[in-house]
Simulated scan of single mutants.
Amino acid sequence: MLSPTGRGTAVGGAVLTAAGYALGYPEAAALGVACLLAVASAVVWTLPRPELAAERRITPRKVGRGEPADGIVTLTNTGSRTRRGLRATDVCGDRPLGIDIPVLRPGEVHEARYALPTARRGVIPVGPLRLLRIDPLGLARRARDYGSSDTLVVRPRVRLLPVLPSGKAHHIEGPASDTADDGSLTFHALREYVLGDDLRRVHWRSTARTGTLMVRQMVDVSLPHTTVVLDTRAGAYPSEDDFELAVDSTASIVHAAACSHFPVHLVGDTGPLLLTDGSGDDAESLLDLLALVGRSDRRSIAAAFDDLEHHRGGGSLVVVTGTGDDDGLTAISRVRRRFDRMTVLRVGGTPPAPPPPGGPGPDVPQLHIASLDALSAGWRGEAVR
């Protein structure tokens, strides 16, 4: 592909050559031919495909918003000729990142490190690496892709917070026979049997129906249960930064509970997003999910509380919303008695409007959070309330 300079040189050379021959000016014709030969030489220079091997690493692959992440590209000249005039561009999302490449002799290896943008949450594609070969005069260039694409996961920022105590133990199922589980364990879900499971928990009816050995998964309902409702409505947040702060606040709350191996129930505008039982890598799963959460165009948050009307009871309910539109917050009154405690987090740089009639009462604390620092201070006070 000719550069703008190359196209101008080609057109000028053609005009000079034609005019020189037509009008009898050999000097102009010779200059025109020289221009055309220079363009042809540039095309020939960039035509061969460089014999290179490219390998990219992203470290770390998962970061919090605003935290540093690097791309590391290793280029190896696998050919028998020295490579000059190479430029490289890697792409992170829709942002091109220039990489300087020195002269590469046969067998030589060059490693380039560059910072990746992490200001926005999401699963961001990185690559493929594009090598641009340019002739010494800058008349022609040829771009080729090397290596494969990779992925950078930018998750919400997290602050270390205490877990809200939720002070009651609820055993709503109750033992049904002398083989029932003791203590505060209750049925949570069915899953496939794995080696080491207690055979007393085999659910024979589901096993017969599916042909796969199924067992009952139990959870300890005496553990502090944290239910978080995240309002993702665009109208609830005056700015994009306010919404990002709301996601960061939600991530900090659920991350604290999950790291303590306590159950977490994350709910969005339309209903449940993720339910964890306090085992495994629940904290990682929650952060990965919140990396993908975006603003919605729903007008009311009321639907988020529909499923909570059937909540088993107990635990803490935290509602994270903005300081803008509060349509649907009155639905909190439908579920407030099903939880031991409730907190409303109003996130944003502007003061929130007064609570709507029928919404959270004076016994439900409302914390106005304008930054993660304010969240840390306000949440620690809430934890000891």
Results as ranks from 00 to 15, higher is better:
331 A>W: 00
330 T>P: 05
335 V>E: 01
267 V>C: 06
274 L>A: 09
297 D>C: 08
265 H>F: 08
239 S>D: 12
231 D>S: 05
282 D>K: 11
319 V>D: 02
234 A>D: 04
313 G>L: 07
314 G>D: 02
313 G>H: 07
226 T>R: 01
266 L>C: 02
236 A>N: 07
327 D>M: 07
309 E>V: 14
320 V>P: 03
250 T>N: 01
321 T>Y: 00
234 A>P: 01
313 G>N: 09
259 C>L: 13
301 I>P: 03
247 V>P: 00
283 A>L: 03
303 A>H: 12
288 D>F: 10
243 F>W: 00
287 L>I: 02
230 L>E: 05
269 D>Y: 00
235 G>E: 10
295 R>K: 13
338 R>D: 08
275 L>H: 15
262 F>N: 14
262 F>H: 15
261 H>Y: 13
341 R>T: 12
315 G>K: 09
264 V>K: 08
238 P>L: 15
235 G>Q: 04
264 V>T: 04
273 L>A: 10
288 D>E: 13
310 H>Y: 14
260 S>Q: 13
236 A>C: 09
283 A>S: 10
308 L>G: 07
258 A>D: 02
254 V>K: 05
255 H>L: 07
291 A>I: 04
311 H>V: 03
269 D>S: 14
248 D>H: 05
239 S>P: 05
291 A>D: 06
301 I>C: 07
286 L>Y: 05
303 A>T: 15
298 R>K: 13
281 D>Y: 15
243 F>S: 00
247 V>I: 12
323 T>Q: 11
319 V>I: 14
226 T>L: 11
274 L>I: 10
263 P>A: 08
290 L>M: 10
335 V>C: 02
337 R>L: 10
231 D>Q: 08
336 R>L: 11
262 F>E: 15
232 T>I: 06
245 L>K: 06
240 E>P: 05
302 A>E: 14
226 T>H: 01
341 R>Q: 14
242 D>Q: 06
244 E>S: 04
292 L>F: 01
300 S>Q: 09
253 I>D: 04
260 S>K: 11
327 D>T: 15
269 D>V: 15
231 D>G: 04
263 P>E: 02
302 A>K: 06
276 T>Q: 09
317 L>E: 01
277 D>T: 13
332 I>R: 03
254 V>L: 01
335 V>P: 03
253 I>T: 00
240 E>C: 06
273 L>M: 14
298 R>H: 14
238 P>H: 13
335 V>L: 08
281 D>E: 13
250 T>P: 00
321 T>A: 03
291 A>F: 04
318 V>F: 09
236 A>F: 03
250 T>L: 04
336 R>V: 14
237 Y>Q: 01
263 P>D: 03
243 F>Y: 12
282 D>I: 06
243 F>H: 12
231 D>I: 01
241 D>E: 12
285 S>D: 10
289 L>D: 03
273 L>F: 08
266 L>F: 05
323 T>K: 07
245 L>M: 11
285 S>F: 12
312 R>E: 11
293 V>S: 01
300 S>M: 10
242 D>P: 04
227 T>Q: 06
277 D>W: 00
296 S>H: 05
226 T>W: 00
333 S>M: 06
237 Y>T: 05
315 G>D: 10
341 R>C: 09
229 V>I: 09
239 S>V: 11
334 R>Q: 02
273 L>E: 07
311 H>M: 07
290 L>K: 08
314 G>M: 02
254 V>N: 03
231 D>L: 02
